[in-house]
Simulated assay, not measured.
Amino acid sequence: MDQHLGQRLRQQFDQLTPNEQKVAGFILDHFDDIAVYSGADLARLSGVSKATVSRLFRRLGFASFSEVRQHARELRYHGVPLVTDSKALGSGLERFQRHFERERNNLHQMLAAIDAETFDALIEALDRAPEVLVIGYRNGYPPALHLRQQLMQVRPGVRLAPLPGQSLGEELTGVSPGTLAIVMGFRRRAHGFSNLIEQLKGNGLETLLIGDPTLAAAGVSPTWQLECPLDSVSAFDSYTSVMSLINLLSNALLHKRLGEGRARIDAISDAYSGLDELA
């Protein structure tokens, strides 16, 4: 993604005229709301003419303010937390209903996109793999940690990578072919994400990629890919569909190996008691 509006403003701020700097300063102070304002709003609130606002955006590479607003919407698509509609959340009980509807839509889209036969093949791979390596960077790390915690109650040989403060090189060296790598890949992915998927495949690992719809532009081809919409009513992404998918995968694996899974859960509960770890 090219430099976004805020980055361009900061980079060129010292070269702007005093009136252009007024507009730039206002935008930087209210960047989350840029898609809400009109060009006339920016001129009025900054105390400059509409011509000054238009001249500033042309200097930054935008043909019109409508192009700026489209740019802001694209930033939101790529994961930048922007408020693109100041009234999107609603108020009172309405905000709960809007939130519920968006969450329900995300879950429906996620589940409707999963083919039953593909899902069964994935659970079979989760069951037979000698080891499962769960990988998550940035906002993919919390769901990766949760998935590892669920799977390790059902089967042995589940590892998380990278560990805090560490890199992946050591984790991938010596991993045996047949290992199943589960990679969390949500928008604003770390640099080199595509190389990671190719490296895993080159090492003979089966790969499950769990991500959002922006994966379509990532140009990767894992063994399996499951998409989880992250849309919310406002700026911050929702990971409800991701956590629901983790629950579905974990439960399906437990029922696939119910005898071994029950025995392992009992053994873990005994260990909790022996160590007096839980209240």
Rank of each mutant, 00 (worst) to 15 (best):
G169Q: 10
G211M: 06
H146A: 15
G204Q: 03
S194I: 00
L209H: 01
A181E: 03
H146S: 14
L196K: 09
A181H: 07
D115G: 13
G192H: 07
V175K: 11
A161E: 10
H146G: 00
L209Y: 12
P143K: 05
G211I: 09
D212N: 08
E170R: 12
L172F: 08
E198D: 13
P164N: 09
T118P: 00
L172A: 06
A190Y: 02
L111H: 06
L111G: 00
P162V: 04
A129S: 15
I123A: 12
A161M: 08
I210W: 01
A161V: 13
V154E: 07
L122N: 07
V183Q: 05
A125I: 02
L209A: 12
E198V: 03
V175C: 04
P142C: 05
T214K: 02
S167C: 01
T179P: 08
A181S: 13
Y137W: 12
Q149A: 15
V134T: 08
F193Q: 02
L205W: 01
D115Q: 12
R155L: 12
P162H: 05
Y141N: 09
Y141Q: 14
T118C: 11
G136A: 09
L215W: 02
A121I: 01
P142R: 04
G178L: 07
G165N: 06
A125V: 07
N139P: 00
E170Q: 12
P130C: 11
R128Q: 15
I210T: 03
R189C: 01
Q149M: 13
P162R: 06
A190D: 00
D120H: 12
L147S: 09
L208E: 05
P213S: 05
A116N: 09
G219N: 08
A218K: 03
M110R: 13
L151P: 05
R188M: 11
A216L: 07
T118N: 12
N203I: 04
T179G: 04
G136S: 08
G174H: 08
H146L: 14
N139W: 08
Q150G: 06
G204A: 02
E206S: 14
G140F: 10
L160F: 05
F193Y: 15
E206D: 14
E124C: 01
A116F: 01
S167P: 00
G174Q: 03
L147N: 09
